[in-house]
């Protein structure tokens, strides 16, 4: 079986239901990786891929503290702030599993932060998450993402 998007062998095969229509997706590791950001984090495709990556030689490791995915899985502890991006999406799933499926922080933020750029990127990502959540009819997650969006805009408003 070949990847839907290129000629490499597919390693991920998944049945997806979008707006009531069932399709089967076949993807190579690279394309599955790219797709991952557009799939709800709890979907089997993400777990399959994570399992595939853990078993392979090129393990992601955190540039900040050297933590590998396997080490993180073993102790369920992140090693530094950078782990949260370096070990994504596996760490995203671990967080969401531990947090009853919650999608993002909402509420207070530290007063001392200088990250207008990160906030814009985050806002774009939240909008995308919102679209995905609504499409997948995951309304509880959608509501949380909406709250997070409101908070991001609130902080921006205060600082402006």
């Amino acid at each position: 079986m070949k990847c839907d998007q290129c000629n490499k062998p597919a390693v991920v095969h998944e049945t997806v239901i979008t707006a009531g229509v069932q399709t089967t997706v076949h993807l190579c590791a690279e394309h599955a990786m790219m797709q991952l950001h557009h799939v709800p984090a709890s979907a089997p495709i993400a777990e399959l891929l994570a399992a595939h990556l853990t078993g392979s030689r090129h393990q992601p490791a955190c540039g900040g503290c050297g933590m590998t995915l396997a080490e993180f899985r073993k102790h369920n502890l992140a090693g530094c702030s950078a782990c949260f991006d370096a070990l994504s999406p596996a760490i995203d799933q671990a967080i969401q599993r531990a947090q009853g499926g919650a999608a993002a922080h909402c509420g207070r933020a530290p007063a001392r932060r200088d990250d207008a750029e990160a906030r814009q990127a985050y806002r774009a990502r939240l909008l995308n998450d919102l679209e995905q959540a609504v499409a997948a009819e995951r309304y509880e997650v959608a509501a949380q993402v909406r709250n997070a969006l409101r908070d991001v805009d609130g902080i921006a408003g205060q600082q402006a």
Binding site: A78, A118, A121
Partner: peptide, 15 residues
């Protein structure tokens, strides 16, 4: 300066 993440809020070692 607290460790902070735009998606996850206040960062802690344990998820």
């Amino acid at each position: 300066d607290y460790a902070w993440h735009h998606r996850w809020g206040y960062l802690t070692a344990c998820p």
